[in-house]
Design a protein around this nucleic acid. Structure first.
Lengths: 230, 230
DNA sequence: TCCTTTTTGTTGCGCAGGCAACGAAGAGTG
DNA sequence: CACTCTTCGTTGCCTGCGCAACAAAAAGGA
């Protein structure tokens, strides 16, 4: 593990609040294994049962499902610092609903789930902290999903957009921010058609509510935006 | 705690796989407190920080949020056996986005979250199991939310209905089942208008796909239904 | 550089479904 | 029983938005 990957690990939610000098001992105790995956190689498949979750040290992973019509649907993108497979492993007897591939050359750190969850014999001081972090990660993924359902249950596309932008404003505290991903990604996230999304943000721009370029948005009138949020 | 409530506790996901004769010792070790809430009394409010999650021993709880327009939106119904507030407590520094009221006279068992998560000194044999159960509960709530987003991201109401019914068929293994709740509840869950839902299931009935009465549905043609699932 | 691919803006058409309104059939309540 | 409240079915109207199609800008790739 190089210095940059170590930085990613230390900055990840799973290892938040852990002393850097304890990392090596921890990884040993947890029986963590680091592996390299080349671009477009499969990390695990649909129906697989996992024994370890993966922390992305570098590169990125893509999780996709296949529906009954055989279409491949992008479910999630996991960049450096993300923990993948944790929720799945926390669910007893579950098989993966998605397959996961490396969308770039990636370094993955595999952490056996049960080693994290069950206390080791000489209850290491950091073990409890690590467990809490793991549970936090899972809980936060729940909230992300919940937020998504809130967006999707909004009646109009206008409201969905306003909610998403307002949330991002609250999260960053800034009126200008970058959402990441393409316009199509945003449309998918909001459960809408790309052109419909473009049309609507165009309208909002002409109404002086916001301005945008690519994935960067600037809220011009927080008041008007709030009205649309509902 | 009476015998029926004890049965609810033993049947709950949190206490799955725990020996009945260990329960009393556990509850003592966990510092669990049982409390009675009369109908329509507040259990906790929006913005509250929790110190314990609640296991519903009898009665039922209702979680509602208030949007910017002041409307009260039903978020969840928790019946006997449900664990409430667990995901919230697993998220550090979070405040409740909903208020929770007893929708009937209810008995609640409050379990301090940190007592479950951190190992006690003489690492009781059941402690690890309880922790795993807690994490499983949270993970399963994640999957429920995820399933919801899958429903909501379906393009047509027809497809959403088909997905929901097909999932229930897979879950129960029966072509006839009861979904629970009113027609309006189902419409909300599917992110649709009640009359639109009625119209659509009426169409599906006339096409010989299904039959229904109130919240009970019978799949008449699994093949046709599968076509609609996509 | 040229060529291909991806991403974004724009616009017209058509329809799925939201909305409102009404009637009917329970389900409680006094 | 009379009265209220809830739930459900049905239908007409109208609009939000999906969809397809095209153009142009941007981004690689060779």
């Amino acid at each position: 593990m190089n210095q940059q990957q170590r930085g990613v690990l230390l900055g990840s939610g799973l290892f938040a609040g852990i002393q850097p000098d304890q990392i090596d001992a921890m990884l040993g105790c947890l029986n963590a294994r680091q592996e390299h995956y080349e671009k477009n190689t499969l990390v695990w498949n649909i129906g697989d049962t996992l024994h370890a979750c993966a922390l992305v040290l570098s590169g990125a992973l893509r999780a996709e499902s296949v529906n009954a019509s055989g279409e491949h649907l992008l479910m999630a993108n996991h960049r450096a610092g993300a923990l993948v497979g944790d929720v799945l492993m926390a669910t007893p007897g579950s098989k993966s609903p998605v397959y996961v591939v490396a969308s770039e050359d990636s370094e993955l750190l595999f952490l056996p789930f049960h080693r994290i969850m069950s206390g080791c014999d000489d209850c290491c001081s950091w073990h409890t902290k690590l467990r809490e972090n793991l549970v936090s990660e899972i809980a936060m993924k729940f909230w992300a999903q919940r937020q998504r359902t809130l967006y999707l249950s909004a009646k109009s596309l206008r409201q969905r957009i306003a909610m998403r932008l307002y949330d991002e404003y609250c999260r960053t505290g800034s009126l200008t921010f970058s959402l990441g991903g393409t316009r199509e990604d945003l449309a998918d996230f909001l459960g809408a058609n790309r052109s419909a999304l473009s049309r609507e943000i165009g309208r909002m721009k002409s109404e002086g509510i916001l301005d945008y370029y690519k994935d960067t948005f600037r809220i011009l009138s927080l008041e008007k935006l709030s009205k649309d949020v509902g």
